[in-house]
Design a protein around this nucleic acid. Structure first.
Length: 472
RNA sequence: GGUCCCUUCGUCUAUCGGUUAGGACACGUGGUUUUCAUCCAUGAAAGAGGGGUUCGAUUCCCCUAGGGACCGCCA
């Protein structure tokens, strides 16, 4: 026997919705752990709930993982394709008397629950069908696993430590439904075995399932994998993150222009830490990741922090890469940036990204370049007593035939001196006229990004508009 | 209600029994700046409460309180 067991982890989402942020973190931790241990990381799609599983979600999970650059080894493992094998195991368990047929109807179970509620005792299935030894013909049944009744079980969890429970708190859970379909606990146990998973790293909410799945492993005399149950991510309100929460899916972050490496870095530091280190390259995170440093308490999402980490990555991404990210971001989530402006934006990314925390910010900051509009509301903000001065500026710039910083500065300085005004008095109106907004880049940056022709063009257009308004 | 888990600044966290309890985000103040932002400087901010153990407890143990997860023929 090979006693150096290969480390194999898995991420096992069900395709019933967009990949949420907790799932992304689970995937990340599994991936990092396997890379750190030089093992494998597998993807298993748990699609046995036919009602809720959808192809579009399957595609979405795959593309999201790809976007996050969390790459699984081999092909995705589709759980529904292995159903026969699960059913087979259920029947073996039945044959070996580790499981039994339960003929209870829904009504009977409801009644049991109701009685427990009345007596104020906790409900677990009464196990009454354990005592039926002969098959009842023509009556539908489920197969239940014979859970241990006596004694205690200790789960040696790699994150939670030793978790001890009384065996009688685990009910005789269903492993095969009335329609002969396996349930989650059976399928997961069988697949984990068949995929030779060495470490099951998953959300805290699965902890109770470990006790169920371990029992199946024991009865089948399979080697039990290691378990690591990581604390859940909580919403701002401190509850388990649900799909209804804002910003609960990876898509929500993509949408506002968060970079994958930023989201990964954020997720890594949420519940895991290495000394005081905040920023981790991919190599560093693989090298330093361990299960030991995962905290035991749930953590809340902090939007400001994600943005701040994103800001760091935005500013450290090279312009030639950033422009591509911006272009495809705009195309998917905003409006397409016309090709003729790509080069201009790229050249000016230095100051555009300087003011940005996300791709969305860069998009908004550079909007004046490729989709310029000057609305009436903004025009109103311009101090009309400065119009003559502005016209004079236009005249002087046209004479210079350049909007280079030196020339502009020269012109502005003279005007400020002659008119006894402040830079602000002309800077602010100019910004509005040139960008359509009172907030934006420095005037010199705007000028150099627009170029002489467009600069003049926008000013002239503005005066035309004003003159027309006066006439009317 | 039962079972299990958790508890250090507002948030994410560091601390291998002895620290002025550290960092980051957010926040306050000051400065740089024609706006917004950036940037620089600086400030405020935490061991849930109560018992033990110990020369000494944020750290180890117990209790209380608070929070969370699970309690499906969903996964």
């Amino acid at each position: 026997m090979n006693n150096i067991q290969k480390i194999i982890t898995r991420f096992a989402p069900s395709p019933t919705g967009n990949l949420h942020i907790g799932g992304a973190r689970t995937a990340l931790f599994n991936w990092l752990f396997s890379k750190n241990q030089k093992g494998k990381f597998l993807l298993r799609i748990e699609d046995t709930d036919i009602q809720r599983s959808k192809n579009e979600y399957y595609d979405q999970i795959l593309s999201t993982l790809k976007w996050l650059e969390i790459n699984y080894d081999g092909e995705p493992y589709i759980q529904s394709k292995n159903i026969e094998s699960h059913i087979n195991i259920a029947n073996i368990l039945l044959k070996n008397e580790h499981a039994y047929k339960c003929y209870c109807t829904e009504q009977e179970l409801e009644e049991e629950k109701r009685l427990c509620l009345e007596k104020k005792i906790p409900y677990t299935y009464s196990r009454k069908c354990r005592n039926i030894f002969e098959d009842i013909k023509n009556k539908p049944f489920v197969i239940r696993f014979k859970s241990k009744i006596e004694g205690k079980t200790i789960l040696k969890d790699l994150v939670q430590g030793n978790v001890e429970i009384n065996n009688n708190t685990i009910e005789d859970f269903v492993i095969l439904r009335k329609d002969n379909k396996p349930t989650y606990n059976l399928s997961a146990a069988v697949d984990d075995y068949q995929m030779r998973i060495s470490h099951v790293i998953r959300g805290d909410d699965h902890k109770i399932n470990a006790f169920k799945q371990i029992q199946i492993f024991e009865c089948m005399k399979w080697n039990i994998p290691e378990y690591a149950h990581i604390p859940l991510i909580h919403s701002k309100e401190g509850k388990k993150l649900s799909k209804r929460d804002d910003a609960s899916t990876v898509e929500d972050y993509k949408k506002i222009g968060i970079l994958p490496e930023a989201l990964r870095n954020y997720l890594l530091r949420l519940g895991w830490s290495y000394k005081d280190k905040e920023i981790f390259t991919e190599e560093e995170s693989i090298e330093l990741f361990n299960l030991k440093n995962i905290g035991k308490s749930p953590s809340k999402l902090d939007f400001d922090r994600i943005k701040s980490i994103n800001e760091f990555y935005i500013k450290s991404t090279k312009d030639e890469n950033l422009i591509d990210k911006l272009i495809s971001y705009a195309e998917i989530y905003k409006t397409k940036i016309p090709v003729q402006f790509h080069e201009t934006i790229k050249k000016n990314l230095f100051f555009l990204k300087h003011k940005s925390k996300s791709l969305e910010d860069i998009y908004n900051n550079s909007k004046y370049i490729f989709s310029y509009v000057l609305v009436e509301n903004e025009i109103k903000k311009i101090d009309k007593s400065k119009l003559t001065i502005l016209k004079n500026i236009l005249f002087l710039i046209k004479k210079e035939k350049s909007v280079k910083k030196d020339f502009l500065q020269n012109i502005f300085d003279k005007i400020i001196e002659n008119e006894k005004i402040k830079f602000k008095d002309i800077g602010q109106p100019l910004r509005i006229i040139l960008t359509g907004s009172e907030y934006g880049p420095a005037i010199y940056d705007i000028a150099s990004s627009l170029g002489f022709n467009e600069f003049i063009n926008r000013l002239e257009l503005f005066f035309e508009k004003i003159d027309k308004n006066i006439k009317n």
